[in-house]
Computed example of a mutant assay.
Amino acid sequence: MERPARATSYRSPIQSRRNLMRKLRLAPYLLVLLTVATPAFSQSFDLGGLPALTTEQNLDGEVTYSLSLQVLALMTAVTLLPSLVLGMTSFTRIIIVLSILRQALGTQQTPPNQVLIAIALFLSLFIMQPTLTEIYNVALSPFLSESMSAEVAISEASAVMKDFMVANTRSDTLLMFSDMAGADGYESNADIPFSTLLPSFITSELKTAFQIGFLLFLPFLVIDMVIASILMALGMMMLSPMLVSLPFKLLLFVLVDGWALTVGSLAATFVAT
């Protein structure tokens, strides 16, 4: 007598995806187990020149494994990278001015946020290129060639960044934060701590960005007022002045080559070191 065939179990795509995620979560543990079980591994597992997994042998012959603090410091630096881009470069001033310009034009979400961030990012890269090149020459290149220690390379790179930030920071703002920190004065830019220079630089960038945004807003505000007065004189009070003034603002912006003028003026406002 023949046995009835077993019913094949059906796995939905969601269940298959969950099983795959469970297997991926086990990957780090399998790596550690392979490291422990394989005697062919050396005393340290290197990751890009940094000892990611180090081994220590106790007095009783037992081998223990531990993650290096250098990897932890590297991952912490990666998480702080967006904050460094916002607080130590020209990105803040550029993105604020572009956002105010979009509001002055009255185009709502055109250009979208992704486009504005891309413009601000690449324009910041253009402005910061001399500073980044100097950091590479005086700090990164000697460190990669092992002719300079990491501590000295960080000190040299910090000095270059401080020169750029001090050159683009208002003196009254820097003096205000220095007085709040209880410092009498600094002999050179390298003596200014980042705890004082960073808030001074960001505050100065915000003030400068809003001043530039105010100057950009004025001509578009005049167009809105003129259109609103004409519509009120014609008795068209139910018609939105913003809707009528938008084509004229776009026409004015295109005729004066507004994007090139705005971006070029923004780049010229920064002082190169």
Rank of each mutant, 00 (worst) to 15 (best):
F210H: 01
F45M: 10
F210A: 01
L234M: 15
K207M: 06
F164T: 03
T76P: 00
S124Y: 11
S265Q: 12
T76Y: 12
I100P: 01
D179R: 13
F270P: 00
I154H: 04
M1F: 15
T262K: 04
L140H: 04
M238R: 10
L266N: 01
E205D: 05
A272Y: 03
Q57K: 14
P247M: 07
G182S: 08
V160F: 07
L251S: 12
S68M: 05
P39S: 15
T107S: 08
N58H: 14
G182M: 10
T196M: 12
L239N: 05
A27D: 04
A167P: 02
V254C: 09
T133M: 11
I202V: 13
M148I: 04
S229R: 05
T203N: 03
S200M: 02
L218T: 11
V85I: 15
G106A: 06
T92D: 02
L34G: 05
P247C: 14
I135S: 04
L72A: 13
S141I: 08
D172R: 02
E205G: 00
S147Q: 14
M180V: 09
S90F: 09
E134V: 00
Q43K: 08
L218W: 12
V85T: 05
S149N: 03
S145A: 14
G235L: 12
L20D: 13
V166M: 02
E62Q: 13
V71D: 01
L105T: 01
T8Q: 15
P199Q: 04
F210V: 02
T269F: 12
I14Q: 15
T35M: 12
P112R: 11
M225H: 04
A209K: 03
D191Y: 03
E56G: 07
E146W: 01
I95R: 02
A268M: 08
F253C: 03
L105G: 00
F253M: 05
A228K: 05
L175V: 06
E56W: 05
T92Y: 11
M1Y: 15
V244L: 12
Q109W: 13
S229P: 02
